[in-house]
Lab assay of single mutants.
Amino acid sequence: MDPFVVLVLCLSCLLLLSIWRQSSGRGKLPPGPTPLPVIGNILQIDIKDVSKSLTNLSKIYGPVFTLYFGLERMVVLHGYEVVKEALIDLGEEFSGRGHFPLAERANRGFGIVFSNGKRWKEIRRFSLMTLRNFGMGKRSIEDRVQEEARCLVEELRKTKASPCDPTFILGCAPCNVICSIIFQKRFDYKDQQFLNLMEKLNENIRIVSTPWIQICNNFPTIIDYFPGTHNKLLKNLAFMESDILEKVKEHQESMDINNPRDFIDCFLIKMEKEKQNQQSEFTIENLVITAADLLGAGTETTSTTLRYALLLLLKHPEVTAKVQEEIERVIGRNRSPCMQDRGHMPYTDAVVHEVQRYIDLIPTSLPHAVTCDVKFRNYLIPKGTTILTSLTSVLHDNKEFPNPEMFDPRHFLDEGGNFKKSNYFMPFSAGKRICVGEGLARMELFLFLTFILQNFNLKSLIDPKDLDTTPVVNGFASVPPFYQLCFIPV
């Protein structure tokens, strides 16, 4: 058959498939802009700032609406009420993970971030239990974070109060905490193996944040037939998995079943207990991918939040002064901060919360999916439909947070200066898919920041009023603009 005829037939089939998918069930789905064949609503979305586009569309179609990214149908949730109703009140029905062709290629359905069903539930339950087990290797997770915080302070001392970009050092600290939990080992910041790991993690975040990856996920045929950065992403992930597998083999040879040292040991012990169960989800494949998931999810998000926190503290020296006064009063100079201190430091706690609220790190979270046909607000959402959640619409709700575009710790303080919780605080998402490392991340943010401010004054290279804190939105995360500062020993 003539190649031209084959091409026309293929394009015609794709067009018909697109029209059929977009028209099927439209009477039951939430409203939304009319999609174009094949490309859907992509032309109506700013790929570099999806969150802003969703906010604009919500003003037209309401808090629940339908979009098509290519052939992929998505239902968008915008605003606290619908997000709570879906992710919390109907948590089980909305607990699936959205379709990610690239991740599915890399992870093969294993791990904790992109798995679904029984596998996801069992691996998540085990990971939560293990991360909360403060007795691994007779050292609590808090001990590990405190140790890394001391190392971080010593690295900052080496800058000798000269101007520096904190990106690298602030990236090393949370990565080392995860390494300590998974591998029972922290690395020197100049260790070549550690630097290679950091390089792969950072490069992957840069790649994932590009519009090209959005295109690959919406048109998965590209993955096999086109060159691009997605190939580098898959190569980096394969490198990390190979490295983790080597460490798993080392653990198998040296493990003491009665004295687990780290996450890998705990997983291997669980595998041993379930070795007679042919349906067990505790396999080497799941261990390797879960460890890679924890490394990827637990490094860049925390380091970016820390980097943004220091920029905001530079911009608002009056806030920094209040935090340091609270540190001096509650902790002093002669001991290290600990998590028990947080309950006695409402202002510092409010500042950490406000940093996370203000920066809105992951504006749309990772997409969910419905696990069955769901009736939601008089609409029928078919099983498997991807759910896109606007966390921006919750964290920047102007009824809950007056002047949401302003950095103001009073958003989390009552009139008496006591810490005030808010149900709208969802930087880790909400419901059954809430970030498994939430507790660890909150511990790291509090301890790293208090250790830094206990030991250093922060000095800006320019007038604080002239510092730009506008986030650089890159399609996946909101990151701070480049800046330098000086760490002046107190």
Rank of each mutant, 00 (worst) to 15 (best):
R335Q: 06
G98K: 11
V370C: 11
L245Q: 09
M74R: 07
P480S: 07
L90V: 09
I88K: 05
T299L: 01
V145S: 03
S365F: 04
K270T: 10
T469G: 10
I264N: 00
I331M: 07
R410A: 13
L102A: 05
Y308M: 11
S140E: 06
S254R: 07
P35V: 05
Q324C: 11
T299K: 04
K465L: 12
L467P: 04
G437I: 03
F187G: 05
K118F: 14
N204C: 06
F100A: 15
P464T: 09
C486S: 11
F263K: 01
P227M: 07
P227Y: 08
Q22P: 12
H396F: 09
P337S: 03
I269T: 12
T229S: 15
M339R: 07
F401K: 00
K121G: 10
L57I: 10
R433M: 05
V5E: 06
R119W: 06
A161P: 04
M198E: 05
V145A: 05
S254E: 09
S365V: 07
G439D: 15
G25F: 08
D46T: 07
D360S: 10
L366D: 00
L461R: 11
Q22Y: 15
D262L: 00
E326T: 01
M339P: 11
T320Q: 13
Q214L: 10
V64E: 01
L15G: 10
V374N: 00
V288M: 06
D341V: 04
D373G: 05
Q184D: 15
F451V: 15
H411D: 01
E285P: 12
S254V: 08
P427M: 02
E318M: 12
V64Q: 02
D341R: 03
P174F: 07
T386K: 15
L306A: 04
K158H: 13
P163K: 09
P174G: 11
V355D: 01
S95F: 02
C486D: 04
Y189R: 05
V6W: 15
L15Q: 05
I289Q: 13
A430G: 09
N418I: 08
M136V: 13
F482T: 15
R261C: 05
L458Y: 02
Q192D: 11
L447D: 04
S180K: 08
E203H: 05
